[in-house]
Design a binder for these strands. Structure first.
Lengths: 346, 346
DNA sequence: CTGTTAGCGCATTCAC
DNA sequence: GTGAATGCGCTAACAG
């Protein structure tokens, strides 16, 4: 294909509803109905119309539709770092629930800074969305305000610690961290570090839970908390474990802010010939797919990510419908999955 | 917050441009200009207007704007399994390039089946998109047709083996696989398996490259190709390695369709006490972040995913602009990154 | 079951 | 630098 032959088509050739109507010998509204509500048009006409639509390559204009009907059918999902491993399952859940409805999901990836989140949020609000799913990063008054005033159902997902603008579904990250930390103590670990990136408030909640449990046990040592403000990654896990062992050779375990960090820590232990779980115990967070397949398999906290997505979409749909409104706060709970990386004889 | 106090706001309270105009004592069009083109409004008026906009909480209606201006400013990105590790960097690239423009990105996650892909595609086409980025799964005439007739620039990304409907950017997956396979041969491996999920055409192209090189070397054995039609995952990597070693104890290495599979294979080797790279060599694909941090680090083929995203967005922007149109095919090349998992003395 | 009328909220075009 | 008229493409509400 040479450049010369490439299309530079504009929309001058756009086929409209009236074009189709004219061509089919009916009125525009009938075509509109044949498309959206086929039952309401006589079979014969319907067939003719649909054939003409096909022939002319008619594509409905959603902007016009949204404007006329005040109903965009669009559900916006906004997440900082949309494409993270953690979010994969959430998206699958959302899509699965929405498939049987006539809603459409569109995702936007916000930066982690609040300006960008506000931008993305405003963009969706400008589209008369039928619903909004929001993953918060840091509590922010301006964002809260926008969510509260949104003229559509809004579900905030992942953590349930804050009262929602409208609805919220997720787990209690602090409680989850407490459980994980208790597990490490029960397994006989005493110098328990916290490794992770501390950029969002869920991480902060996990840190709180970790700290509370260790303080209660008289084991808390703030210098064992190694947190950086970068993206979480396996490389970061390696780096943090390295720093930990050089600063605190006696550290005997780590609660990692997520499984990436945990995996990195595991690799670094292997590199150093540190046996896991005997000499060093590792507990991750999220229970990503690979946690169960690592060697040794990584103990982690399973977060019902798929369900969070599925139910969030369900809440939007139910809130928009006329039936019983959904609850405005749902705690889906978590589950500590004990595996080899902490399977030390207490 | 009790259910009774929850908002069930509809858009009855929507503030329009004319509301703002009236309140500010100007005409609607002036408000419109103050918002989109502040330079064209006198400073004094502008300030007044922006203040009123703020006070009244005016939110522009993009549907109306798109309808009136025939310009939605929306770029759609459609990818099967949007939220895969592989796509993270692509998204970052796209976002980075687009940030300085007035375009907006929205992502849609298609199922792997073609019906769903067509649905998503049509949905975007219905929105008068300013551009479209498409990740193909399997070549499909209906999809090609839609892309070709799209009234906007379209960039197909990832693989460049097929002539694009409009533009394409990516790498040659077949060539990349050939390079990886040659590397394994050069390292002295002879019974080289192929492990992976073979669901999309890029995987197919990699398989072709693998096969061609091995045939040329007289080493090809079709029974060493273990491919399943499920999602790629670390668990799958474990499983495939297990099957491979039970069916072919003499297999001495594997070219994995991606790094997840490679990581799984590595874990499984560790579990079996099979030393990598001495007794078994592993080469992955994509060079995900963790590949370099595994123990041993995993040899992989680096795909310039960030650049693919960045340049794809750039091509959309340039194609829409009036300057020199972008090339319609860009090969960004790949790079074999040799690491420990194949570092055997030849 | 089908058509007519009107208008969604905004931007373009042309005046001033 | 500002405003008035007009219509984008479609659908709600009514009429027949």
């Amino acid at each position: 294909m040479t450049p010369g032959t490439r299309k530079r088509r504009q929309r001058q050739d756009k086929v409209t509803l009236s074009d189709v109507a004219q061509s089919a010998g009916v009125s525009a509204i009938t075509v509109s109905r044949a498309l959206r509500d086929p039952e309401k048009v006589s079979p014969h006409l319907r067939d003719t119309i649909l054939r003409v639509v096909e022939e002319m390559g008619y594509v409905p204009d959603l902007a016009a539709r949204a404007l006329a009907s005040k109903n965009s059918g669009l559900v916006g999902v906004i997440s900082p770092g949309l494409a993270s491993h953690v979010f994969v399952a959430v998206i699958r859940g959302i899509e699965d629930r929405v498939r049987s409805s006539d809603l459409r999901i569109q995702y936007a990836s916000s930066d982690s800074d609040r300006e960008d989140q506000l931008r993305q949020l405003r963009f969706f609000l400008s589209q008369n969305p039928a619903g909004l799913v929001h993953v918060g990063q840091m509590p922010d008054p301006a964002i809260d305000e926008l969510l509260r005033r949104a003229p559509c159902p809004v579900v905030e997902i992942m953590d349930i610690s804050r009262p929602p603008s409208d609805m919220v579904i997720g787990i209690d990250h602090r409680l989850a961290a407490e459980t994980a930390t208790r597990h490490l103590i029960a397994k006989g670990y005493r110098r328990i570090a916290m490794l992770g990136n501390g950029s969002d408030f869920r991480a902060r909640r996990r840190l709180d839970g970790y700290q509370a449990v260790l303080e209660e046990a008289g084991l808390f040592d703030p210098t064992l908390v190694l947190s950086v403000d970068s993206h979480s990654s396996v490389g970061l896990g390696c780096q943090l474990l390295e720093r930990l062992k050089s600063e605190h050779p006696d550290a005997d375990s780590a609660f990692c802010q997520n499984d990436d960090i945990a995996l990195g820590a595991l690799f670094e232990c292997q590199r150093r010939g540190l046996s896991v779980p005997q000499e060093f115990g590792i507990c991750g967070f999220n229970d990503l797919e690979y946690a169960g397949f690592a060697f040794p398999a990584i103990t982690s906290v399973r977060v019902p990510r798929y369900d969070i997505g599925y139910r969030a979409a369900d809440m939007i749909i139910r809130a928009a419908g006329t039936g019983m409104p959904p609850p405005n706060m749902v705690d889906l709970g978590f589950q500590l999955v004990e595996r080899g990386s902490t399977a030390r004889e207490g």
